[in-house]
Amino acid sequence: MRVKFTVNGRPQEADDVWEGESLLYVLRERLGLPGSKNACEQGECGSCTVRLDGVPVCSCLVAAGQVEGRDVVTVEGLADHARRRAAAGARGTSLPDAQQARGGADSHTGEGTELSPVQQAFLDAGAVQCGFCTPGLLVAADELLESHPNPSDEDVREALSGNLCRCTGYEKIMDAVRLAAARQGEAV
């Protein structure tokens, strides 16, 4: 079957999709967006988390056909998503994030890539080790800070309780979310 939907603001189309394929498979194997990760494919790890019409979901449990006509944001689109959000929040007066240099990124290293605040905080806090859980955690944490700018530690833990990490023991992930929240607070 054919599936048409929007990913990170761009219309996408996938052909010859087998009906049993998940959104995750279509993103990774058909659309060249492997950022969402395939760690468990049973909704028990959160590494495939994407926003589906704004709501964080496990893309491994969304049938490809179910996303027809819908809007998906993946980790690859997170920086853009955050930039648009900041721009909307600034109501057109100033766009500090949007004015950051774009297009100068080194394709080998990602150096110079524009990052969302939560992505930058994960780097700065040392919240990334193997990094396989990172995309899902970033999407979940970004959504948390969008809806709850000043979460308590327990709120953070609850919001991220669907995202397993095997490397870090979560402490630096907590640090990263606190850091992103604090920076977000300063920026307002």
């Binding site: 980790v75 920086a79 290293t109 780097l123 040392g126 990334v128």
Partner: peptide, 23 residues
């Protein structure tokens, strides 16, 4: 010195190529 990962940016943008991402 506490130093940030050289592969960190690729990992937070989803561009780091894990073995299951190859095509």
């Amino acid at each position: 010195e506490s130093t940030l990962r050289p592969d960190g940016t690729l990992k937070v943008t989803g561009e780091f190529a894990y073995s299951s991402d190859l095509w």
